[in-house]
C-alpha cells in the first residue's frame, strides 16, 4: 500500500510539472461558465447581430436551470472527454516506449500497483476538473437563471462522475492493449460514442449500460429522481469498471516489459 501511494504521488507530481493539473481544470471551468452565460445572453447576442425579427426573439425561451446543467454535461461529454482522452492516451505507451517503465518495473514493484496508481491519478484529475467546472456552471446558473436544489445537483453529479470513470477506465484498458496512442484515443472515443448513441436510440435494450448515466443525471436535476432502471445501470457500470481494471492488470502483467532491446 505504501508503494502504491508512492507511485500515485509520482503520477500527481508529474502532472503538476507538465501542467496537466492546470490546463485540464481550466478547460472544464471555461465550458462550465460558458454554457449558462451564453444561454442567458443568447437573445441579446442575437439581437445585437440583428439577425432576427422582433417577434422571433420572444419565441426563444430562456432554458430552465436543470436544462442548462444538462447542456453543460453535454459539453463535458464531448469536449471534456476529448481533452481527457488526448491528455491520457499515452498513459502507458509514453513510459513504455521511452523506456522509463522498464527501469521501474525491474525494481520490486507490483505491476498491479503501477497500473492502478496511474488509473487512480487520471480519474482523480478528471473528477476534480469536472467538479470545478460544474461548480462554476451551477453558480452561474444560480446567479443568472434560477437555482437548482443542491441535493439534485449533487446526486446528478455523482451519477455523471460514474460515467466519467467508465471512460477513464476505457482509456486504461486500451492503453494496456495497444502501444499506439492514436489507437487508444480512437477506440476510447469511438466506443464512448457508440455506447451513448445506442443508449439514446434503444434505451430499453441498453437500460443496463453506462451510456444511460447522463440521461439519469439530467432527470435528477429536474425532478430529483433518476429515470427507470437507474440502479441497474449504476450497478452494471461499477461492475464493468472493476472487470475492466482487472483485465487491464492481467494483460499488463502478462505482457513483456522489455519488448525491444533499444
Amino acid at each position: 500500500m505504501r508503494q502504491w501511494f508512492i507511485l500515485f504521488k509520482k503520477e500527481c507530481l508529474e502532472s503538476v510539472r507538465n501542467f496537466k493539473w492546470l490546463w485540464i481544470p481550466i478547460v472544464f471551468i471555461l465550458f462550465g461558465i460558458m454554457q449558462p452565460v451564453t444561454s442567458y445572453y443568447l437573445p441579446q447576442i442575437l439581437e445585437s447581430f440583428g439577425g432576427l425579427p422582433e417577434e422571433a426573439l420572444f419565441d426563444i425561451p430562456v432554458p430552465s436551470g436543470p436544462q442548462i446543467l444538462a447542456e453543460t454535461l453535454g459539453q463535458f461529454s464531448q469536449i471534456g472527454y476529448l481533452v481527457l482522452v488526448l491528455a491520457f492516451m499515452g498513459v502507458i505507451a509514453e513510459e513504455k516506449n521511452s523506456g522509463t517503465q522498464l527501469m521501474i518495473l525491474v525494481k520490486p514493484v507490483s505491476y498491479g500497483a503501477y497500473l492502478t496508481a496511474k488509473w487512480a491519478h487520471m480519474s482523480l484529475l478528471a473528477v476534480t476538473s469536472f467538479i470545478l467546472g460544474f461548480s462554476f456552471a451551477v453558480y452561474y446558473t444560480h446567479v443568472l437563471i434560477e437555482s437548482v436544489p443542491a441535493a439534485h445537483v449533487i446526486k446528478g453529479a455523482v451519477v455523471y462522475i460514474l460515467g466519467m470513470l467508465f471512460v477513464m477506465t476505457l482509456i486504461l484498458l486500451f492503453s494496456t492493449l495497444f502501444n499506439s496512442r492514436a489507437a487508444v484515443a480512437f477506440l476510447t472515443l469511438g466506443l464512448t460514442i457508440v455506447v451513448s448513441l445506442l443508449s439514446s436510440l434503444m434505451p430499453n435494450t441498453m437500460r443496463w449500460s453506462p451510456g444511460m448515466l447522463s440521461s439519469h443525471a439530467y432527470s435528477i436535476f429536474g425532478t430529483g429522481e433518476g429515470g427507470e432502471a437507474m440502479w441497474l445501470s449504476i450497478a452494471c457500470t461499477l461492475l464493468i469498471i472493476s472487470v475492466m481494471v482487472g483485465i487491464a492488470v492481467y494483460i499488463f502483467r502478462n505482457k513483456e516489459t522489455a519488448s525491444h532491446s533499444s
Binding site: R2, Q3, I6, L7, K10, E14, R17, N18, S98, G99, T100, L102, M103, I104, V106, K107, P108, V109, A258, S261, S262
Partner: peptide
C-alpha cells in the same frame, strides 16, 4: 539497461529517492 531512460522532469536526487522508496 543498455539505454537507461529517466523521468526528465525529476532531479537526480528525486529519482533516487523515488526508486529507493519503491524498493521499500
Amino acid at each position: 539497461p543498455q539505454f537507461p531512460k529517466f523521468y526528465g522532469w525529476m532531479s537526480g536526487q528525486e529519482y533516487l529517492m523515488y526508486t529507493g522508496q519503491l524498493c521499500g
